[in-house]
Computed example of a mutant assay.
Amino acid sequence: MPETPLRIGLLQCGHVHPEVAADLGDYPELFAELLAPHGIELTTFDVDHDQFPTDLEAFDGWVISGSANSAYDDLPWIHRTEDLLRQMITDEIPMVAVCFGHQLLAQAMGSTVAKAADGWGAGVHAYEFLGEPEPWMVPPPSAPVRVIASHQDQVTALPDGAVLLARTDHCPIAAFTLGPTAFAIQPHPEFTAAVSRGLVERRRDRIGAEASDAALASLDQPLDRDLVGGWMAAFLRQAAAVARARP
Score class of each variant (00 low, 15 high):
residue 52 F to Y: 10
residue 52 F to S: 00
residue 53 P to C: 03
residue 53 P to S: 01
residue 53 P to A: 00
residue 54 T to F: 00
residue 54 T to Q: 13
residue 54 T to G: 09
residue 54 T to M: 05
residue 57 E to H: 03
residue 58 A to K: 05
residue 58 A to F: 04
residue 59 F to R: 13
residue 59 F to N: 10
residue 60 D to Q: 02
residue 60 D to C: 03
residue 61 G to I: 02
residue 61 G to Q: 01
residue 62 W to E: 02
residue 63 V to L: 15
residue 63 V to D: 04
residue 64 I to F: 00
residue 64 I to H: 01
residue 65 S to W: 00
residue 66 G to D: 06
residue 67 S to H: 00
residue 67 S to N: 07
residue 68 A to D: 05
residue 68 A to Y: 01
residue 69 N to G: 01
residue 69 N to A: 15
residue 69 N to Y: 12
residue 71 A to L: 04
residue 73 D to T: 02
residue 74 D to P: 01
residue 75 L to H: 05
residue 76 P to C: 00
residue 76 P to Q: 02
residue 77 W to L: 06
residue 77 W to Y: 10
residue 78 I to W: 07
residue 78 I to Q: 05
residue 79 H to T: 08
residue 79 H to V: 02
residue 79 H to I: 02
residue 81 T to M: 08
residue 83 D to N: 08
residue 85 L to P: 08
residue 85 L to V: 08
residue 85 L to I: 14
residue 86 R to M: 10
residue 86 R to D: 08
residue 88 M to C: 13
residue 89 I to L: 12
residue 89 I to V: 15
residue 89 I to R: 11
residue 90 T to Q: 13
residue 91 D to I: 05
residue 92 E to H: 12
residue 92 E to I: 05
residue 93 I to W: 08
residue 93 I to C: 08
residue 94 P to G: 11
residue 95 M to V: 14
residue 95 M to F: 10
residue 96 V to T: 09
residue 96 V to P: 04
residue 97 A to K: 07
residue 97 A to W: 04
residue 99 C to S: 12
residue 99 C to P: 09
residue 99 C to G: 09
residue 102 H to C: 10
residue 103 Q to C: 11
residue 105 L to W: 11
residue 105 L to A: 09
residue 105 L to F: 13
residue 105 L to G: 03
residue 106 A to Q: 07
residue 107 Q to V: 08
residue 107 Q to F: 02
residue 109 M to V: 04
residue 110 G to N: 08
residue 110 G to M: 04
residue 110 G to C: 07
residue 111 S to K: 03
residue 111 S to T: 07
residue 112 T to E: 15
residue 113 V to C: 09
residue 113 V to I: 13
residue 114 A to E: 14
residue 114 A to Y: 08
residue 115 K to F: 04
residue 115 K to G: 10
residue 117 A to T: 14
residue 118 D to K: 14
residue 118 D to I: 03
residue 120 W to Q: 06
residue 120 W to I: 11
residue 120 W to C: 11
residue 120 W to S: 09
residue 121 G to C: 13
residue 121 G to I: 06
residue 121 G to D: 12
residue 121 G to W: 07
residue 122 A to S: 15
residue 123 G to A: 11
residue 123 G to T: 11
residue 123 G to M: 11
residue 123 G to K: 11
residue 123 G to D: 12
residue 124 V to Q: 09
residue 125 H to S: 13
residue 126 A to D: 12
residue 126 A to E: 14
residue 126 A to V: 04
residue 126 A to R: 12
residue 127 Y to F: 15
residue 127 Y to K: 06
residue 127 Y to D: 12
residue 128 E to A: 14
residue 128 E to C: 09
